Computed example of a mutant assay.
Amino acid sequence: MEDYDTIQIAYLFDREPSRDTYESLFELFLEYSGADEDQSKLDVIYTDEENTSKTSSASVSKVSQIARSANSVTVKAPMGWDDLSIGFSRDGAGFPAYESTPYLTFTAWIYPLKDPTRETLEQVKLRRREFVELLGRASDVLEPRWGFGRRGGLAIGEDDTIDDLVATTTPPLYEYNVFRPETVETIGRERVRSAPAWYVEELDNGGVFLSVREPPKQCHYAAEPCLEVADHLGVPLAKTERYH
């Protein structure tokens, strides 16, 4: 995978999402897909408890049941303009061990969010807005301990660990961020709300979802908008040296 091909976001939890949480999440994706009732199924690729790989097209309820019991799972959510993949691996290594820090990763191709070739700029801008709105609403459903994302593969600093980053109340700034309520209070709620970012949304639980730049633009140390938001919040810009 090339660095410019995808946007990836990770939601990290104290405990794995419940079946009800998965159902709410998958219903949200179907809502954004505009699917009819007769088309309200999701494609799922998973490895069961016997390490047998399976592929299915199933209802929200069935996919939620699979997500609670599978060793690994990838769910393809049809967004109308492209597929958004959601998944995890209990057997995976390095990002992090699922048993210590449950997580979900969201992956979207950048091409539908790039400069238009066959449609208007207004249509593409609307899609970019819907993309971050969906991530914000998913944050409301999932209530993660921390969420971070960027264009390209998920990455952290060479001297960082995921567990330490999840635990801190002042995590570094990525392109996409979910701050839990404790982080918002530590930084200062008004300071977070007034951040000069492209998109800021307060969550029902008191947390905040924040997209620093309009998708699919990147954050790096030469990107002035990212530095401006990091300085405003008083947190460092994320280091992206070690990929997962």
Rank of each mutant, 00 (worst) to 15 (best):
L203Y: 01
P216D: 06
R242I: 11
H220F: 13
T55M: 00
A230E: 06
Y221E: 12
F26M: 06
T6V: 02
E190M: 12
I162Q: 05
R15F: 03
A238E: 05
P216V: 02
A70M: 11
Y199P: 04
E143Y: 13
E16I: 00
G94M: 01
P112C: 07
Y32R: 13
I66L: 14
A197E: 02
L104Q: 02
I9F: 14
V208D: 01
R19Y: 08
V208L: 01
W146K: 13
L237E: 05
V75A: 03
P196R: 05
P116K: 07
N205M: 12
D5A: 14
A167C: 00
V200L: 07
T74Y: 07
L165R: 11
Y174P: 08
R19K: 14
Q65L: 14
R19M: 15
V229H: 05
G152R: 10
L165Y: 07
F131H: 01
H244V: 12
Y103V: 03
S69V: 13
C226W: 05
D140N: 15
E49I: 15
K125V: 09
T120L: 15
Y98T: 00
D140A: 09
S64R: 09
E31K: 10
A35C: 05
E50Q: 15
F148S: 07
L237W: 12
R213V: 15
T52D: 07
A58C: 07
L165W: 00
L84I: 09
V124Y: 06
S56R: 08
T169C: 00
L104T: 10
E37G: 12
A93Y: 12
W81V: 08
P112G: 04
E143A: 04
P181L: 05
P78W: 03
T170C: 14
R128H: 11
M79R: 09
L42V: 02
P215T: 01
A10M: 05
I110H: 06
V178N: 07
T52P: 12
T105R: 10
Y32A: 08
F95H: 13
V73R: 00
S194T: 10
A10N: 04
L233P: 10
S53Q: 14
P116T: 01
I110K: 03
V235K: 06
T240S: 11
T55A: 13
C226M: 04
P216Y: 08
T6G: 00
G234E: 12
Y32C: 08
T240F: 06
L173Y: 13
T169P: 04
L28M: 11
